[in-house]
Simulated assay, not measured.
Amino acid sequence: MPDETDPNRLPALLEGTREKYLSRRGDGDPEFAVGDRVHVRKRHPAGHTRCPRYVRGAEGEVVADRGAHVYPDENALDGREGADGERAEQLYNVRFDAEDLWGDDCTDADGLHIELWEPYLVASDAA
């Protein structure tokens, strides 16, 4: 039985984790780059999603590419038919003007930054 207090145990457990979860897997290069204008798809799934309703349909700007991470919408399906388990998808930080989300009376001049996975987004010129 392994020694739970062994300080060398953690690196062995983490071996390959970065490559598995933080590297791009699947269909290739990221679809968006910093500076791209994107629209959030206006979807209302019956199950789990990390895409806030208040940004669905809104336009924003990609300000950072966070790399690929486990896509929670698929991971939450937990092996059900059609689920792709721990599939990684590109994650972006997208900035929205607060006025565009909440109207003219908004006082937040700095806007709002939200982390959104690539499947939530479409290029603004394709929206």
Rank of each mutant, 00 (worst) to 15 (best):
M1H: 15
D3V: 11
T5S: 15
N8Y: 00
L10M: 14
P11C: 15
L13M: 15
T17V: 14
E19C: 08
L22Y: 01
S23Y: 03
S23G: 06
S23E: 13
R24Q: 10
R25P: 04
R25F: 05
G28N: 06
D29G: 07
D29M: 09
P30S: 12
A33S: 12
D36N: 08
V40R: 05
K42L: 11
K42C: 09
H44L: 11
T49R: 05
T49Q: 09
R50W: 05
R53M: 09
R56C: 13
G57M: 08
A58E: 05
E59L: 00
A64G: 06
D65F: 02
A68F: 02
V70A: 12
D73G: 03
N75K: 03
E81R: 13
E86C: 11
E86I: 07
E89N: 08
E89S: 06
Q90G: 01
L91D: 02
Y92R: 08
N93L: 10
V94Y: 02
V94H: 02
R95D: 06
E99S: 04
E99R: 13
E99G: 12
L101S: 13
A109R: 15
A109M: 13
D110T: 13
D110P: 07
G111P: 07
H113L: 15
P119C: 10
P119H: 06
Y120T: 00
V122C: 14
A123D: 13
A123Y: 02
D125A: 11
A127F: 09
